[in-house]
């Protein structure tokens, strides 16, 4: 059996709330194989975002262990976590995803600069190619303020994918979009998942969004209540 790309073992995370610890994730264990298109579903406050933050190396669990491509990241130092984020993980957030002072293609090439790719032409070609793939080939020079919400999410997806990460984490990527734009974004993500083999894990509380997933993990009060394989 192949090593899962992501593995969580009895992961717990609580936040200090005054004198008390408030549990956000209460003993979660699951594995994700490379190339999966997985949705973490649950109501607000169920612990979806916390789980994504833990898998995305933005946060560390209070207990339990997390493995990424076989490497335990739960106790890694901050700089190591930053390195992993830089090289292996792409993020798409709900909103305000882009750096306002950079144009669309500059936003997309940004992770490549962080990765240390100095060839400007190579960066630009990669960014342009992905922006064309997400349907924004004619908006390269536009700043985020000159793009619609749906276009901004497309740029964010292009940016998440430009460094060819093994894992893309999307936290409610369609929550701020109308249903038509939301469906388009999800269809695009699924298409890229198929075409590139990149693992996508996205959180949602929207039924329509859940329908796009090929695997659905339901979360409630920081615990997994269901883990279903879907035919999408």
């Amino acid at each position: 059996m192949t090593t899962p790309q992501v593995r969580l073992n009895d992961v717990r995370k609580s936040y200090r709330n005054g004198k008390f610890d408030q549990p956000a994730v209460a003993g979660v264990s699951f594995s994700v194989q490379a190339g999966e298109f997985l949705s973490l579903a649950g109501p607000s406050g169920s612990g979806k975002t916390t789980l994504l933050n833990l898998i995305g190396c933005l946060d560390r669990p209070s207990q339990g262990s997390i493995f990424l491509d076989g490497e335990e990241i739960s106790a890694a130092l901050k700089n190591r976590l930053a390195d992993i984020r830089r090289r292996r993980i792409g993020f798409v957030f709900q909103s305000l995803n882009l750096i306002p002072v950079l144009s669309a293609w500059e936003n997309v090439e940004f992770p490549l600069i962080l990765e240390g790719i100095t060839d400007r032409r190579r960066r630009k070609e990669a960014a342009e190619s992905l922006l064309t793939t997400v349907g924004l080939g004619d908006c390269l020079q536009r700043r985020p303020a000159q793009l619609s919400g749906g276009q901004q999410q497309r740029v964010a997806i292009a940016r998440a994918l430009v460094k060819k990460p093994s894992l893309v984490l999307a936290d409610e990527p369609t929550a701020n979009l109308d249903s038509k734009n939301g469906e388009e974004i999800l269809a695009l993500m699924r298409e890229l998942n198929r075409a590139l083999g990149t693992t996508f894990i996205f959180s949602t509380h929207d039924r329509m969004v859940m329908d796009f997933a090929r695997r659905l993990i339901r979360i409630h009060d920081g615990r997994i209540t269901a883990d279903e394989r879907l035919d999408a």
Partner: peptide
Amino acid sequence: TREIGLLRSMGFRS
């Protein structure tokens, strides 16, 4: 602040 978080998510170090 959020922009700083965004940069950190992309691998910016402190």
